[in-house]
């Protein structure tokens, strides 16, 4: 049993009684009281909807949402989705949207965090200003950018014209070639400061002594970043990238308000598409099936997310 040296005389101790699961649950019955209110609320507003979405995805439900008239249609809704060319187009756009938004938000955030890491006059103010896009509502952001992008009176076109880069206003969002990218810019504007603040906190965990030691050893700023700072940032970076990716995958407001997924579906992503299917075209079953597929994709991402977040948790248990 034990590999501790010198334990011969103790080896005849009885194996401690193992307690069963029900006993354990009973022993912690008071612990559950603390989480019960939260769990009840979550069961109603989260558990039930998830169950219901799954159920609806196997039915054909009339547009009026008359549930008594819904008909079981097996996997039809799923087949409809997976065989529709729109599905693949929207999926590709969702991937582009998620990957590009996440990448640029992260890189800009990283640059800002590194530049802000050193103490200088006005740093606090600068940080606060850079964080504002992240606090204002996406609704406000969408309207402002819609106005900035305006095809006739947009400030961006006007500026580019004055600088002489273009000679007539560009139609950024009413254009099937540019709409998605125009929206990605808005999304990055809204989100980079989230990455910045996370990475700034991460930078604070990089031991100064290590950086100084590297400097004494003659490492260039780039080498110091790559060999000392970056490895320390890996944990935070993982969490940040995951959160950004999830958030972007789930975006709705910016595309919905700015283009409604258009023109001609060129800026449609999963969520706007599902919303359109459900509340625009009342195709409840197909929309639910979409939601279930999305759910499964998110479960996989979610596994990594929770793993990254709860690492090292068990060392902190109390009685």
């Amino acid at each position: 049993m034990s590999t501790v040296p010198g334990q011969a005389i103790f080896r005849d101790v009885p194996e401690p009684r193992r307690i069963g699961l029900s006993q354990k649950v009973w022993n912690s019955r008071f612990d559950y009281l603390y989480v019960a209110p939260a769990l009840i609320v979550m069961l109603i507003v989260i558990g039930y909807p998830i169950y219901y979405t799954i159920e609806l995805s196997f039915f054909n439900t009339p547009a009026s949402l008359a549930l008594s008239a819904k008909q079981f249609n097996g996997l039809d809704n799923y087949v409809t989705i997976l065989t529709s060319p729109v599905f693949w187009k929207v999926t590709w756009q969702t991937v582009l949207w998620t990957v590009l938004s996440t990448f640029f938000a992260f890189m800009i955030g990283l640059g800002a965090a590194l530049a802000l890491h050193r103490e200088f006059a006005g740093r606090g103010v600068l940080r606060a200003l850079l964080l504002i896009p992240w606090v204002v509502s996406a609704v406000a952001a969408s309207y402002v950018w819609k106005w900035l992008y305006h095809s006739d009176f947009g400030a961006i076109s006007a500026m580019l014209t004055q600088v002489g880069w273009i000679d007539k206003p560009i139609n950024f969002i009413d254009n099937t070639n540019t709409s998605l990218y125009a929206l990605i810019v808005v999304n990055v504007w809204k989100e980079f400061s989230f990455a910045m603040i996370m990475l700034m906190a991460g930078l604070q965990t990089v031991p100064d002594t290590l950086l100084r030691a590297a400097q004494v050893d003659g490492a260039s700023p780039w080498q110091r970043f790559w060999h000392v700072t970056f490895p320390h940032l890996q944990g935070v970076s993982m969490v940040t990238l995951l959160l950004l990716a999830v958030q972007n995958f789930n975006s709705f407001i910016i595309p919905w308000i700015m283009t409604g997924g258009g023109p001609a579906g060129s800026s449609d992503i999963w969520i706007t598409h599902i919303y359109q299917l459900a509340f625009g075209r009342q195709r409840w079953g197909v929309a639910s099936a979409y939601a279930v597929i999305l759910f499964i994709v998110m479960m996989v991402l979610g596994y990594f997310y929770v793993r990254a977040l709860t690492k090292g948790d068990d060392a902190r248990a109390a009685g």
Partner: peptide, 24 residues
């Protein structure tokens, strides 16, 4: 103690003079 086990319980002088095992 070592590895969760009580190895020896005695006065410091006795522990010093008569350790029960190599660990102690």
């Amino acid at each position: 103690m070592n590895g969760g086990f009580l190895q020896q319980y005695d006065s410091p002088a006795n522990v010093f003079a008569n350790p029960v095992n190599m660990f102690v």
